[in-house]
Every structure is written in structure tokens, then in C-alpha cells.
């Protein structure tokens, strides 16, 4: 009886989570340009549209480029910071850890508005590269948390053995730390990449009028006329996110990673 109830409960939650996506997937295979469900006819042409229609293709390209670059920059900021707090005792530098966590903890509109005033004041407002920096700062929390966890799981005696045998800091870093920390770098990058791909408000506030990322494009399409391409892009995004998180889970310890992510957020 209890098992049955539990099944039912999980099924209902599953339906709640999946229902909008199922409807969107259904809409995306409509034959004509209409948002009907169940779909009338079957066609995958709306998926082709993402790559053949220059507007959607450019938006996709802009989003992927932005996500790839900003996630890399976020890791580049987080890695030395996490390494430093693992290697050194310097209490006042904890302030930078807090600064790294803050943008993600506050409501996003605040970080977005801060960056908007900053880029407007410095005169760079609207330049595409400002979005890369803005996203890197906004998402630096994710690699910072995964990397801090990664460093804390390194057995210090390994490093000690290496330095007793004459390895300097640099050699230790390249031959011991990097191989051990690599999975955490990858998952930190993956989290930042996926979230940047989906981010709307920071991108909109900083480069919304000059660069159209996919979320911005979808929102504009929502306002100025529906097309099933919106649905096919959505399905593509869900598939990409699920695939990336699936890979992270495959190569890493997802329950452990998430345990750290949320307790750090508190």
C-alpha cells in the first residue's frame, strides 16, 4: 500500500515536471505553422529551421559562443582562487570567496542592473564581449564551488610526498593537482556552460539590443508571433542540458557534487 502510494507520488511529480516539455515536443513536430497539440501531421522541418533560418542560426551561434567563452573565463577566475584558499592560510582573502558566491545568491536582476550601470558608465554598453565578462562573473560561483570541493578531496600526503622528493610548486601543480582536479574543472565548466546557455536577464540587460542570444530570441518571438521553431529550440535545449548533466553524472559523483553545491549555497 505504502509502496503504491510512493509510486503514485513520484509518477505525479514526474508528470508535473515532464508535462510542459511533452506538450512542447508535440508542438514542435506540427506540419504547419501553428501551435496545436496533439500535433497535426508530423514534420521535423522546425528542427531544420533552427539551422537554416539565419535569425535562429545566428542566435544559436551567439548563445553557444557566449556560453563557451564565459564558462571558460569563470573557470579561469575560480581555479586560482580555489587553489589559493586550499594552499594558503590567509583569512582576509576569504572575502573573495564570498564575492564569488554573492552574484549567484542575490536575485539575478541585481547583478544584471549593476553590470548595466557599470557598462553604461564606462561607455562599453552593448559590446558583445561585455556579455562574456558579465556571464563569467554571474556564474563564477558554480566552478568555484565544484573546485573547492575538488581541492578538499585531494589527499595532502600525495602532495607532501612529491615535494619531499624535490618537486616545486609548479611541478606539483601540473603533475598531481591538475590530474586530480580535472573532473571538477569539467563539471564546473559544464554547469556554467548550461546555465549561461539558458540565461536571459543578464544577457538582456547588458547586450539585449545588440546581440540576440537564443533565450532573448525566444522571448522576442513570444511577443511578436509564435512559431513552432520556438518549440523545437526548447526541445533541443532540454536535450543538450540532459546530455551534459548525464555526462557529468557518468564521469563524476553527482549526488556528492550536488550535496556540496547546495550546502555551499546556504
Amino acid at each position: 500500500m505504502n509502496r503504491l502510494l510512493q509510486r503514485l507520488y513520484f509518477t505525479l511529480i514526474g508528470i508535473f515536471l515532464a508535462a510542459p516539455l511533452i506538450v512542447v515536443a508535440g508542438v514542435s513536430v506540427n506540419e504547419r505553422q501553428s501551435l496545436t497539440f496533439p500535433p497535426k501531421g508530423f514534420s521535423l522541418s522546425w528542427y531544420g529551421e533552427i539551422f537554416t533560418n539565419p535569425e535562429w542560426r545566428n542566435a544559436l551561434l551567439a548563445s553557444v559562443t557566449l556560453a563557451a567563452l564565459s564558462a571558460a573565463l569563470a573557470v579561469a577566475i575560480a581555479l586560482p582562487l580555489a587553489w589559493f584558499s586550499w594552499r594558503r592560510i590567509a583569512p582576509w582573502t576569504n572575502i573573495f570567496q564570498v564575492l564569488g558566491i554573492a552574484p549567484f545568491t542575490l536575485p539575478p536582476v541585481i547583478t544584471a542592473l549593476g553590470l548595466l550601470t557599470f557598462w553604461a558608465t564606462t561607455g562599453f554598453y552593448g559590446q558583445p564581449w561585455t556579455a562574456v565578462i558579465s556571464h563569467a562573473i554571474f556564474f563564477v560561483t558554480l566552478p568555484l564551488v565544484t573546485l573547492s570541493l575538488g581541492f578538499s578531496s585531494i589527499d595532502r600526503s600525495l602532495v607532501e610526498a612529491a615535494s619531499t622528493m624535490g618537486a616545486d610548486d609548479r611541478t606539483v601543480f601540473l603533475t598531481i593537482i591538475v590530474p586530480l582536479i580535472l573532473p571538477y574543472i569539467v563539471s564546473g565548466y559544464a554547469f556554467a556552460f548550461v546555465l549561461s546557455l539558458n540565461e536571459y536577464i543578464v544577457a538582456y540587460m547588458t547586450v539585449g539590443f545588440t546581440l540576440e542570444t537564443l533565450p532573448i530570441k525566444i522571448f522576442n518571438a513570444l511577443r511578436y508571433g509564435y512559431t513552432p521553431t520556438m518549440a523545437s529550440v526548447t526541445v533541443l535545449f532540454v536535450a543538450v542540458s540532459a546530455a551534459i548533466f548525464g555526462l557529468v553524472a557518468w564521469f563524476g559523483d553527482l549526488p556528492k557534487l550536488l550535496g556540496a553545491l547546495s550546502s555551499e549555497g546556504k
Binding site: 510542459p20 537564443l214 525566444i218 522571448f219 513570444l222
Partner: peptide, 15 residues
């Protein structure tokens, strides 16, 4: 969780 708010909004408005 990683879904864009735009996408969630679009999906539910369709539903």
C-alpha cells in the same frame, strides 16, 4: 532547473 525562464514560460503558456 537549468531551463531558461523563457522556455519554462513558453512551455506553460502552451500547456
Amino acid at each position: 532547473l537549468s531551463l531558461s525562464e523563457v522556455i519554462i514560460g513558453f512551455a506553460w503558456s502552451t500547456l
